[in-house]
Design a protein around this nucleic acid. Structure first.
Lengths: 194, 194
DNA sequence: ACGCTGATGGCAGTAACTGTCAACGCCGGA
DNA sequence: TCCGGCGTTGACAGTTACTGCCATCAGCGT
C-alpha cells in the first residue's frame, strides 16, 4: 500500500515491495500468487462472512432480504470502521485497470458463492444466480456512494436505500393480477410509462 | 482461436500466434494491447450497438425496458446466428481466470456506458447505475443459459424470461400502499415471508 | 547428536510486453 | 520518372512478472 501510493501500482516493482517488506522476491510470490493479489488479501474472509450470514438467515426470508441483511452485517462489522482505508484502497484500484479486473473477479466469485448458498436454501436456479448478481450490484453501487460520499451516512443505510431503489427500478411491467395505475415508490426514478 | 483451442490459452505463446498469423510478435502487440484482447475484438462494436439502441429507445420507456429491448436487439442481430462460435469462445473464457477477468471488465465498462446513456435520458443517479448493472446481470445470466442450453430457445426469449425473473426476485418488501398478502408471480421463487 | 519438516534464499529460465530505430511500400507532386 | 513524406512492419534489446529447482537454515521432537 505504501509503495503503491507513492509510485502508483504500475511503477511499483515486486523487487521494491520485497525489499521494503524485508524479504525476497521469491518469498513474496509464495504468499501472493500475483502482484495484484496483495490488495485483496481479505476477500476470502469477506466471502466467508457473507456466506455464513446468508446460510444462517431466517429460513423464510426472501433471497434478496437475506442477501441485503448479510451485506449490512458485513458493512457494520468490517467496513464502517475502515472508511479512510477503504477510500485509499479504492483510489488505487480505480486508478488501475488490472486492479479493477481483479476486483471484479473477486466480486463475481463472491456472487457465485452466494448463489450456491441460495440454491442450498431451496431457491431455484435462474432466481438464485440472479438474486446473487443483483445483491452484488447493490453492494457495488452502495459501496461506491459510501466511499465517494462526503457526509457520514452509514454504509448499511446506503445499502438499504440502494436495495429499495433496485426493487423500484427492476419492477417489471404490471403483472395481470396487479392493480392498474402507477405506484410511485419514494426515491423511484420512472420516466412514466402510461 | 485455433491455437487457444488446441493448446489452451496459457500454453499458447504470442510467438506461436504471430507465426500462425504470418506476422511478427511486435506487430501483434500493435494490434492487440494484450494476449487476451484477441478474444474481445468485437466488444467495442457491441457496446456501440447497445448504446445506440438505448439512446434511440422511445423517450417514455422505463430504464429497464429500454435496456432489455436493446439487449434483445443485440441478441437477434449479432448473437443468435453465432451460437456455436459463442459456445467455443465461452468455453475458452470460462476455462481461464485471466480471460474471465477480461470479460468482466468489458461488461463493467459496458454497464458504465449504458448508465451514462440513461443519465442522458434523465434518469437520476442511483437508479441509472443500478439499472445498468441489473441489465448486465440479466444479460450475463441469460447468455449463460443460452450458451449451455441444449434446446434452441432464442436468446431474446431467454432475456425476456430472465428480466421477468429479476423483477420478481428484486421485488422489495411490500410498500405501505400495496395490497397485503402474497402475490405468487408465475416463475417467481419466493420462500414465503408471512 | 540426529533426522525431519516447513520456510526462506539464490539462481536460472521463460514469456509478456515496451521503446527505439531501420527498412519498406505507397502515394501525391514536381 | 524521380523524389520526399508517411504509415506499417521488422528487428533487436531491455525490463519485469512469474516459475522451477535446489541449497540452506531454524525449530523441534527423539
Amino acid at each position: 500500500m505504501e509503495l503503491y501510493g507513492e509510485r502508483g501500482f504500475e511503477q511499483t516493482t515486486v523487487a521494491g515491495i520485497a525489499e521494503r517488506a524485508g524479504l525476497t522476491e521469491r518469498t513474496f510470490f509464495r504468499y501472493f500468487t500475483d502482484k495484484r493479489e496483495v490488495l485483496f488479501w481479505g476477500a476470502s474472509l469477506l466471502q466467508e462472512l457473507l456466506v455464513n450470514a446468508v446460510e444462517e438467515a431466517p429460513p423464510h426470508s426472501t433471497p434478496m432480504a437475506a442477501l441485503i441483511a448479510a451485506l449490512q452485517q458485513a458493512a457494520d462489522t468490517v467496513f464502517e470502521q475502515r472508511r479512510t482505508y477503504a477510500q485509499r484502497r479504492q483510489a488505487l484500484i480505480s486508478a488501475n485497470p488490472e486492479l479493477h479486473e481483479r476486483e471484479l473477479i473477486k466480486l463475481a466469485r463472491l456472487a457465485a458463492a452466494l448463489a450456491q448458498v441460495l440454491r442450498g436454501r431451496g431457491v431455484e436456479d435462474p432466481a438464485a444466480g440472479l438474486a446473487a448478481e443483483a445483491g452484488i450490484a447493490v453492494f457495488k453501487i452502495a459501496f461506491e456512494r459510501w466511499v465517494t460520499g462526503s457526509d457520514d451516512t452509514t454504509l448499511s443505510q446506503i445499502i438499504a436505500q440502494t436495495a429499495a431503489e433496485l426493487s423500484a427500478v427492476a419492477a417489471g411491467p404490471s403483472p395481470p393480477n396487479a392493480r392498474s395505475g402507477q405506484r410511485p415508490t419514494p426515491g423511484q426514478t420512472r420516466q412514466g410509462r402510461p
